[in-house]
């Protein structure tokens, strides 16, 4: 039961974006469409899963004083892997996400989970935590991307169901803030009810 909770807590109860408010820069920056949100979320999930796995395996060998720089090096290595793989196999998505791919390094969510969870818990819990948090992050990004795409351009995952222009403001910067504000309010309501 406990392991199951480690996995599921990232979706609603401790959702990294809606509840913990971590990793907001990519959340706002790349979610102009649902597919961009999904791509960014999966890239972050991979980094989070791998960094949690490595950190929990070597936690006993890292001196406490240099643990943060060590975590950053581990995270940066996996980010570089994602960067190169995405550039090679998904060049279009890589162009879209641009600057935010290298910036996964400074995503407070990844470092936060390494420091607060993986460096203190056993292997299975840390892997499940990384996967669950990553998928919760992906869920939040995809949801925000979908809302902005539906309102902004009348489409979902690139499929136009409304002809003509939508409310352009939701694709632009201000819409990101406003849409996320309302989504957080709805999520708060939902969390209190359950």
């Amino acid at each position: 039961m406990n392991q199951w909770q480690n996995f599921t807590k990232g979706f609603i109860k401790d959702n990294p974006v809606f509840v913990l408010l971590l990793g907001l820069c990519p959340t706002l920056g790349v979610t102009t469409s649902a597919i961009n949100g999904l791509g960014m979320g999966l890239a972050t999930t991979f980094v989070l899963l791998m960094s949690n796995t490595v950190v929990t395996l070597i936690k006993n060998f890292i001196p406490v004083k240099v643990r943060i720089p060590s975590f950053i090096v581990i995270i940066a290595s996996f980010v570089t892997i994602v960067e190169l793989v995405m550039q090679g196999f998904l060049p279009a998505l890589f162009e879209q996400l641009g600057l935010f791919i290298p910036l996964i390094v400074v995503n407070c969510l990844v470092l936060g989970r390494a420091e607060a969870f993986a460096s203190k818990n056993d292997f299975i819990s840390s892997v499940l935590d990384g996967l669950g948090m990553g998928l919760g992050f992906t869920f939040a990004l995809t949801l925000l991307g979908a809302v902005r795409e539906i309102l902004g351009s009348g489409a979902i995952f690139g499929w136009d169901f409304v002809t003509g222009d939508g409310m352009l403001v939701f694709v632009l910067a201000p819409g990101a803030f406003i849409a996320l504000g309302y989504l957080i309010a709805i999520m708060n309501k939902f969390n209190k009810a359950s």
């Binding site: 910067a173 201000p174 990101a176 803030f177 406003i178 504000g181 957080i184 309501k189």
Partner: peptide, 21 residues
């Protein structure tokens, strides 16, 4: 009540971003 705290801050930031546009 539901908008207190973070949600209203985001909406305010959105309006500020609108001004910067």
């Amino acid at each position: 009540k539901g908008m207190r705290g973070v949600p209203i801050a985001f909406v305010a930031a959105g309006i500020l971003a609108l001004a910067f546009m």
